[in-house]
Simulated assay, not measured.
Amino acid sequence: MSDAYVALEGGSVVEARCRAPGTSHGELVFTTAYTGYEESLTDPSYEEQVLTFSYPLIGNYGVRTERFEDDRVHPRAVVARELTDDVAEWLADEGVPAVDHLDTRDLVGQIREGGAMKCGISAGPDASPEQAKEALADCPGMSEHTDIGAQVSVADATTYEGGDGPDVALIDCGAKGSIVDSLLARGATVHVLPYDVSPEKVAAFDPDVLFISNGPGDPANFEAARALVEEFAGEVPLAGICLGQQIIARALGGTTEKMAFGHRGVNQPVRDLRTDRVVMTTQNHGYTVAEPGPELDVTQVNVNDDTAEGLESDDLNVITRQYHPEANPGPHDSLDFFDDVLAMAGDGCRTPAAAAD
């Protein structure tokens, strides 16, 4: 007899095994990553989502806090073909429901066919299909999370001292820790600021670069960050990753749209339109830039579907990426993005090798 149930938008209920008890709901998405489960589970961009791993075994190299991107698990629940005890115990300690022993190949196929969907999960000794359906009925759409930034952002400004490189104001819309680490490794000083910080408070830091981070949800719900871009565009160099690219594009006259099932995994191929070089990238997003607007040029595209992966403007000093150049555990094909970002601030930037000297 099953002790876990996943109710899917559309009416079906899938039986599973409980690995961490609880009742939850969220947008059901999948990742193709076969490593980096610790990084995925602590990525703030998964807030309000239920994460399905397409790789059949999750947890085969344990759980180590030094690999975390944030200090907590962000998906509302976790689905896998098989979870090891290490990961199951971690999720139980975090209060995040987790289930396994179901056909994730079929589940991923349904998501690819019908798009990311709402789901409800009931797991534990008292679990029932009815509880899962009730959780599903209470599940809002991602665009309805109008203040999702408050769930993932720092409450107060925090400064991380680097070397003698530029000062970066990082607007925390759900920033991964690896972004801060990548900037610090190049000698930058990073001011991590709340997602709804005012232009006046940003100006008080006198940043050399304004950096809009990754994060969860619909970019249309991050109006404060959009206002910052409008305020500082052309005055301070601008950079963005993932959600940050979408916010910058919207602020500069572009549009965004929700994708059918998004890009999530560590094997997304991206082509640079100027060099024809293809790099493999880590991605986690459900929205994309539909039109970049008059101020930005598309410089990189996804090989699989031609969506915009890189935007730039020489006139406004803007550079953005839809993927995650800072990806851990990898690939690291695109780490030079951070060199390009800091180069916009002038000669104060040092590469990691130079900093080590």
Rank of each mutant, 00 (worst) to 15 (best):
V303D: 11
T281I: 06
R274C: 09
T281E: 10
Q283V: 14
D272L: 03
D297T: 07
P294M: 03
H285R: 03
D297G: 00
D276L: 09
D297I: 02
G286R: 00
E309F: 08
E295P: 01
T307R: 08
D297F: 00
G286A: 14
D297A: 11
V278A: 15
V301P: 00
A308V: 15
T299C: 14
G293E: 14
L273A: 12
V289H: 01
V298H: 02
R277Q: 15
Q283D: 14
G293V: 02
N302A: 10
Q283C: 14
E309L: 01
R277Y: 13
D272I: 02
V270L: 01
Q283Y: 07
D276W: 09
V279I: 10
A308D: 09
L296F: 13
R274D: 15
V270Q: 02
D272V: 05
E291Y: 08
R271F: 03
G286M: 01
E291R: 12
A308F: 06
A290L: 04
V298C: 01
N284H: 04
T275L: 13
D276N: 15
P294I: 05
M280R: 14
R277V: 14
V298I: 12
V270D: 10
T281F: 08
V303N: 05
Q283K: 15
T307G: 07
D306Q: 15
V298R: 14
T299P: 08
E295W: 02
P292K: 13
L273K: 15
Q300F: 12
E291V: 10
R274P: 04
P294F: 02
L273I: 06
D272P: 00
V278D: 06
N302K: 12
G286N: 02
Q300D: 14
D305W: 01
T282G: 11
D305E: 08
E295H: 12
L296W: 05
P294S: 13
P294W: 10
E309P: 08
T282L: 09
N284K: 00
D297L: 06
Y287S: 00
D297K: 02
G286W: 00
Y287N: 00
V278P: 02
D276A: 06
Q300G: 09
Y287P: 02
N302P: 05
